[in-house]
């Protein structure tokens, strides 16, 4: 069967492969190469060794600041989104009236694109800050918490849905047995529910982790880095290095390579954790 199919490789594989090579593979390989050069139009690249990387990591550089801001933001978002989503999921698996409607409503913001989300929250947060006579550009603290609130609004519903699916997979008998044995609500949660939804916890943690870490649109629309570049996350810093300054393309590409390596490390970590969990079960 394989032999007859192999004659048709061109038909089945070629369209996807051509698009993949053009849109991803060639740009990726070129991107790695160009990070070691100075260039403005790709064709005028001059080899400069690792000087782009050295510039990217210069003391107190925008890139390092962006990394610190991104890391802080990611930790706070991952914790808050998952905690709140999990509580909501617990409430929404109790068979309360209106459960379906609530789920639908909480999930809705997730479908709205980052740029639109950014401007919605810019209006709301500036409106609240107007009482103090300031706005989002006044302090990096406002931008930081604004982004956290936005991220929560966007992601809670999505994570809640995954937690609900995980909770519904727990056999009902386990809770009944626990109740008969006289376990309190807290004991049941800690000893039965939580261990059994750990796969969902891993999935949700890494989904929020990678979404927070790679965030661009929301950051661009809500604060655009203001005040100064203090609320600039890594993706936005890379964008501004490429398109917001002159002659920095090589540095931008070097930053992009570092960014890629960080994201890839997170993905590898996730894969190892998920594999191990699956082996346990």
């Amino acid at each position: 069967m394989q032999r007859s199919l192999r004659k048709y490789a061109w038909l089945f594989l070629l369209p996807t492969l051509i698009a993949f090579v053009i849109a991803f593979l060639v740009p990726f390989v070129m991107g790695v190469g160009l990070s070691f050069t100075e260039f403005t139009t790709v064709t005028d690249a001059k080899f400069v060794g690792i000087s782009n990387y050295i510039k990217a990591f210069a003391a107190n550089s925008d890139f390092l600041n962006a990394f610190r801001f991104t890391a802080k933001f990611t930790v706070v978002s991952v914790l808050s989104v998952n905690l709140l989503a999990f509580i909501l999921a617990l409430l929404l698996t109790k068979g309360l009236r209106g459960t379906n409607f609530f789920r639908t409503a909480f999930f809705m913001p997730n479908l709205i694109g980052g740029i639109v989300l950014g401007y919605i929250w810019q209006l709301i947060i500036n409106g609240i800050l107007a009482a103090r006579g300031v706005d989002l550009t006044y302090s990096a603290q406002y931008g930081f918490w604004g982004l956290v609130v936005l991220m929560n609004w966007q992601m809670i519903g999505y994570m809640m849905i995954i937690y609900v699916a995980g909770l519904q997979n727990i056999p009902h008998e386990l809770h009944e047995v626990a109740a008969i044995d006289g376990a309190s609500g807290w004991q049941t949660l800690k000893n039965i529910t939580l261990p059994l939804v750990m796969p969902s916890v891993t999935i949700c943690t890494f989904l929020t982790l990678s979404n927070s870490f790679k965030m661009f649109d929301q950051n661009y629309a809500l604060t655009a880095g203001a005040p100064g570049k203090q609320t600039q996350m890594m993706a936005l810093d890379i964008y501004n290095t490429f398109y917001g300054s002159i002659g920095q393309e090589g540095v931008g590409q070097a930053k992009a390579v570092v960014f890629f390596i960080l994201v890839a490390l997170l993905a590898l970590l996730q894969m190892r954790l998920t594999r191990r969990k699956e082996a346990d079960v």
Partner: peptide, 12 residues
């Protein structure tokens, strides 16, 4: 390609 962020390839 799934784990490569867009910024890595956007310029090229």
């Amino acid at each position: 390609s799934m784990i490569v962020p867009f910024q890595m390839v956007m310029f090229t």
